[in-house]
Amino acid sequence: MAMIEICNITKSYGEFKVFDGLSLEVEEHQVVCLIGPSGCGKSTLLRCMNGLETIQDGEIRIHGDRMSGPGVDVNALRRDVGIVFQSYNLFPHMSVLENVTLAPVKVLHESRASAEEKAMRLLKRIGLEHKAREYPDRLSGGQQQRVAIVRALAMGPMVLLLDEITSALDPELVSEVLNIVRDLAAEGMTMLLATHEMGFAREVASKVCFLYGGKVHEEGPPSQMFSEPKEERTRAFLQRIIEAGRL
């Protein structure tokens, strides 16, 4: 049984069907990249997986346990499934250290000392321990996004969802963020990435899924998806990415 099973989910905003019977499986330690045109539901899928948005039909299961619909303890779910956003969403009135320790202290009821010690270890790991007392607005976009990843990691999530985490960054800052994701992948973190970084997807993904028409239109290992996609739509999408000089 796969760790995460997304079975036949549907969701619409009024007339517009975001998901129309979408299914997807993620094994433990897999890195799954979601690609597709804008508006195809990559971000929405991630947001549904940790309960920030609701689905209308179908099921999301983790280890066989239903994690969608009424009665789910979303706060507990979110401890297991962390998410990092495109625009970092750090708390501007808190220092870096307070950003990272808030949830461990208030949600996991860790002592402040141990939460800070863990946070400093994580910040050191990404080379930002000297910024612990700074406020987010004083950091570069790349630094903010690295802090946001650390903030999610501090909760010790089983799964990490990364929602276009490099899209808002200047090109020269992208690699410092991707390096962390690369390390996490190497250490076996289960991750789902919505991304436009095709080169990176090709390198780290265990599986690439092309979302189109409210479904996973095509999925496969990156070697196959990027070199010889079977579906016409996938080919057309990748062709446009190549024309834009992004692959």
Binding site: N75, S87, L102, A103, K106, V107
Partner: peptide, 15 residues
């Protein structure tokens, strides 16, 4: 997005 970030860390509405 600030609420989304806080809720996604497992904080309750009141927290």
């Amino acid at each position: 997005s600030q609420v989304a970030a806080a809720r996604s860390l497992g904080l309750s509405y009141m927290q």
